[in-house]
């Protein structure tokens, strides 16, 4: 019952956040000193050109009217037309969203258990050699931008030792699952980043849990240690770890933008960087909105899963 109330309240909050995000996205694009028409045309445009683009894009209308017009279209799935391709943005966005979701979900499916596992192993003997190796490794991968890790991986595994494709270049409508070998390096880079963050957080909470009284009780009553760790400690570690994974969803999404660009993987992130290069403002606006919405939904899902896995709330 409490769980249901919580989920409903979080859903309402999500709607509020989405509304705020759409307003903020629109505001950044339209209210900041940089003018959309100038941004589209570049710095060398004449005032006449700027004026005609402004009228063509409807920029001469009041802000509120434009926002309502835009948001009403978005709710119908109509994001306007791309300036670069002259085609509607909605369908393009949908295909790329699917590709990004595939990349992100595979990363989560591999990275989350691995990160929790590493954190737990490191916490078994804090300060031991295994902990120091894992923690040192985490500092390294956390401090490096994804493209540094990614480029070294490309050099190592597709140029010096040609094992995997160094680029996932594909037609946006193609299903990336048909070429699993092209997914290995992008997923690997994203998983490494995740290992560092989630692994260190799990380690910190695992050290606390393993030092608690109920663990000592279990050990003293003769339960084998591996069983204590897996059956007694792990269930209490999962909810905070899952909530953290939700919080770091934004990090994964930021990573997606860089990794997709690095490997020419046709997802939303690459769409965004492409649109940036062409000053395709409607596409940027749409992609940012979708990414922020995905971030909000991801946070919500993580909170709900964390709640459902919390042994204290089991009935």
């Amino acid at each position: 019952m409490t769980a249901l109330v919580f989920i409903c309240r979080r859903l309402a909050l999500l709607l509020l956040v989405l509304a705020l995000v759409s307003i903020l996205t629109f505001a950044i694009v339209n209210v900041l000193p940089g003018d959309v028409a100038t941004a589209v045309l570049g710095d060398t445009s004449t005032p006449d050109q700027v004026q005609s683009v402004r009228i063509a894009m409807g920029l001469d209308q009041p802000l509120l009217v434009r926002y309502l017009h835009w948001i009403e279209g978005v709710l119908r799935g109509d994001f306007g037309a791309s300036l670069q391709y002259g085609r509607p943005i909605g369908p393009m966005l949908l295909g790329r969203l699917e590709n990004s979701a595939i990349l992100g979900l595979i990363t989560l499916a591999i990275g989350a258990p691995l990160a929790v596992g590493f954190g737990l192993v490191a916490a078994l003997r804090p300060g031991g050699w295994l902990d120091r190796v894992i923690s040192g490794f985490s500092v390294g991968t956390h401090a490096l931008p994804e493209y540094v890790i990614g480029l070294v991986a490309i050099l190592a595994f597709s140029i010096w030792w040609p094992l995997l494709p160094g680029s996932s270049l594909m037609d946006p409508s193609e299903n990336p699952l048909h070429r699993p070998e092209a997914l290995v390096l992008p997923v690997g880079v994203l998983v490494l980043g995740m290992l560092a963050v989630i692994g260190q957080l799990t380690r910190a909470s695992a050290i606390g849990v393993l030092a608690s009284a109920y663990i000592r009780t279990a050990v003293l009553k003769g339960v084998p240690y591996w069983r204590v760790v897996l059956r007694h400690a792990l269930p209490n570690l999962l909810p905070p770890a899952i909530a953290e994974i939700g919080m770091y969803f934004g990090y994964v999404i930021g990573g997606l933008v860089v990794v997709e660009t690095l490997f020419s993987y046709a997802g939303v992130g690459q769409m965004m960087t492409n649109a940036v290069a062409y000053r395709d403002v409607p596409t940027i606006q749409a992609a940012v909105l979708v990414v922020a919405a995905a971030y909000g939904v991801g946070n919500l899902l993580a909170d709900v899963v964390a709640l459902l896995t919390n042994p204290r709330l089991r009935t």
């Binding site: 903020l24 996205t25 950044i28 990090y251 930021g254 933008v257 940027i284 990414v291 922020a292 971030y295």
Partner: peptide, 12 residues
């Protein structure tokens, strides 16, 4: 904070 950091910075 409801924007991923990199995306917000890029947009701005």
């Amino acid at each position: 904070m409801s924007f991923p950091g990199l995306v917000l910075a890029m947009l701005v």
